[in-house]
Design a protein around this nucleic acid. Sequence first.
DNA 1: GCGCGCGTGTCATCTGGCTGTCATCTGCGC
DNA 2: GCGCAGATGACAGCCAGATGACACGCGCGC
Lengths: 225, 225
Amino acid sequence: MRLLLIEDNRRLSAALKASLMDASYAVDVAGDGAAGEELAQATAYDAIILDILLPVKDGLAVCRSLRASGLTTPILMLTARDTVEDRVRGLDSGADDYLVKPFALNELLARLRALLRRESPRKCGILAVGDLRLDPATHLVERAGQAIELTARQFALLEYFMRHPNQLLTREMIESHLWSYDYEGTSNVVDVYVRRLRRQIDEPFATPLLETVRGVGYRLRAPHP
Amino acid sequence: MRLLLIEDNRRLSAALKASLMDASYAVDVAGDGAAGEELAQATAYDAIILDILLPVKDGLAVCRSLRASGLTTPILMLTARDTVEDRVRGLDSGADDYLVKPFALNELLARLRALLRRESPRKCGILAVGDLRLDPATHLVERAGQAIELTARQFALLEYFMRHPNQLLTREMIESHLWSYDYEGTSNVVDVYVRRLRRQIDEPFATPLLETVRGVGYRLRAPHP
DNA sequence: GCGCGCGTGTCATCTGGCTGTCATCTGCGC
DNA sequence: GCGCAGATGACAGCCAGATGACACGCGCGC
């Protein structure tokens, strides 16, 4: 999730950026309205946090021009002022939410989650490992931009791997996760399905992602970026 | 714009309903959580205003079950309590915004506009996926310029698909949306209606839009432009 | 009231392809 | 080179979904 933070107070923006990155967002920071607007236009952020009182161009104006240019990214406004008229003006300028300083970090995070959830019920859930992407909401899988057709079982297996990247998964773990009933252990379903998955997600591509750990199990390897 | 107001205080709900209708919204009112949830499932509202303190089933629970069932309608929560924890819980239960009583009517209206604006790029008139178009206002459907006659159920089903393009919809999600009462699950109505819809919107045309995801559900595929 | 047409939901049947098993092959590790 | 873990291909059963037919209920016109 990429966020843009437009805030002129250095101390606040540094602290916020750190907290947001702790919450595993990628954060860009702009120190004034014009710079922020430019960044917002140039990059596809998932949400924008926008202070109202800004040098060069104030937050309300930035918000209006972004909306006028067709940008639909969720915008969360921050401000020190708190009258009903302020809020109304903020929301009517095109912001999606409004938060009054001083605010609790938890509330900012909660409002962010609410905004992001609304914008992309699916994006929140997209899993990515290397150039491989899997979307639980749409049940679509692609690698290097190329769509991949998977059966229900294959999808479940890949999802399990992608939720535990780089982690070593034993046959027992996989079996008990995908085939809830007890197997006697004499089956090689897991091997077979790993094979089928490989044929789809690895064989047509240069670098294989699914590794065998002999004697133990399998692992989905995330290449270092 | 159709709104659902879930609020047990008669005086407040009557006053709000009047004000909202002044602002030219169509408003339904429910007096407790269970009734509200049922209404919300049965009808395609544009937004829901939901009190937290409710008889029978409280607002947070209502919100969670609505979201769990796949409903994405914007929800604005109302409450008398105002601690940061309350807000965080409200937003994390799936609400999109949060307003503390007592509030100014203007602020409620502004927040509503903000919520509806977000949904409206699609709703503002016609829903379109590929060369398929559906107009909720006039109940007209056409594909590639050719008009298509649909029954009420077929229309509702298609509208549901078109409001969630590319998203995988399970039978349960579809059933609970279009057939609000509890099914025993032994029915295949969904399959039958998908079949009927396909005969109308897919079979006469070159590229099918309604895909089956075996073992999971269905998906309306938006072709890449 | 009666017949008709339409929309709706249920059921029985059919089929493609998913699924799990097995036999056989491969190659890693000793 | 040997043994075993894992890879691989083939196969048969079965099930999810597709499909066509039907029964019911409601509204409408006669």
